[in-house]
């Protein structure tokens, strides 16, 4: 130990350490706030630390994101799939909702006319490019459907009549088809006429109420329904509303353009009245009297 203290350097070092230890010990004991030396040190180095922190945060976040890239891509893919499934579900639900509403209307119609026999059918085909306005339904003779049966919508709007039938299918000729001639009348004035379909050059079809006298009492917005004349269509089934009144070429009579009460391009479910015509007519008469 004596030798150690004889070494000048080591003894100086020992003295320095002792002095420093005492100095710092006292300093730490009495220090209640930062010393001026600490403050200067912090003032000088804080901007350096700030810059370094921002830099290292950016670098770290870059690498974190880089590392998570695959995970994020997987997450995006998963969410996309979920989104797609949910969209399909929403579409399905919307379809179910529409179908449900249609079935409710059909049910209410059946309840309103308990004497009528309806056969609900689904539209399985259309012939839009054909010059004939027809559609095919999924029920036929096996369900009691026959030629000339009247086809209506769930809202009791006239759609057409059965013109061809098989065991599990039937062809419906729509009221807009030019081959149709339906005895009709204006509900408000009782003015009689004939509804005939007409195919326009743009491919669309309209109904015309023909053979109206020049002075007939008809205005735009009048409701038109079947008159029961002709023996095919029962009386009192709504066809549509008058949208336009025009004089014919010879100007001796006029005709009205009638907008059908049902969108024939979009209808998906129909009701076929399988009752005997006379039964239907008696029901309709009772309905009018009410």
């Amino acid at each position: 130990m004596k030798k150690l203290f004889k070494n000048k350097v080591l003894s100086s070092l020992f003295a320095i350490v002792v002095v420093l230890s005492i100095f710092f010990g006292v300093l730490n004991a009495v220090r209640t706030k930062s010393t001026w030396a600490e403050n200067i040190c912090r003032i000088v180095f804080t901007p350096v630390q700030e810059g370094a922190y921002k830099l290292s945060s950016s670098v770290s976040s870059f690498f974190e994101n880089f590392g998570d890239k695959d995970k994020l891509l997987q997450e995006i893919e998963k969410l996309k799939n979920e989104n797609s499934i949910l969209k399909q579900q929403v579409n399905k639900n919307n379809l179910f909702k529409t179908e449900n509403e249609e079935l409710r209307r059909i049910l209410s119609l059946k309840n309103a006319y308990p004497e009528l026999e309806f056969q609900a059918a689904e539209v399985v085909g259309r012939n839009p490019s054909d010059w004939l306005s027809t559609m095919t339904i999924d029920k036929g003779t096996a369900s009691g459907i026959d030629v000339n049966d009247v086809v209506v919508s769930a809202d009791k709007m006239l759609v057409g009549k059965i013109t061809d039938v098989g065991s599990n299918w039937a062809k419906v000729t729509l009221i807009t088809d030019p081959s149709n001639s339906i005895g009709s009348m204006v509900l408000r004035s009782g003015e009689m006429g004939v509804i005939a379909g007409e195919r326009l050059s743009d491919g669309s079809s309209v109904c015309k109420l023909l053979y109206l006298s020049k002075n007939s009492d008809i205005v735009v917005g009048d409701s038109v329904e079947t008159s029961g004349l002709g023996g095919v269509y029962p009386k009192g089934i709504t066809i549509g509303r008058v949208t336009e009144i025009k004089a014919d070429l010879q100007s001796i009579s006029q005709y009205a353009v009638v907008e059908t009460g049902v969108d024939l391009e979009k209808i998906k479910k129909v009701l076929v009245v399988t009752n005997d015509f006379s039964v239907v007519e008696s029901i309709d008469s009772a309905d009018i009297e009410e």
Partner: peptide, 17 residues
């Protein structure tokens, strides 16, 4: 010690030694 440490001088003396 000034920037990170808890006790002023502890690291200073230790690192010196």
């Amino acid at each position: 010690d000034f920037l990170i440490g808890q006790k002023i001088g502890l690291s200073a003396v230790l690192y010196l030694l």
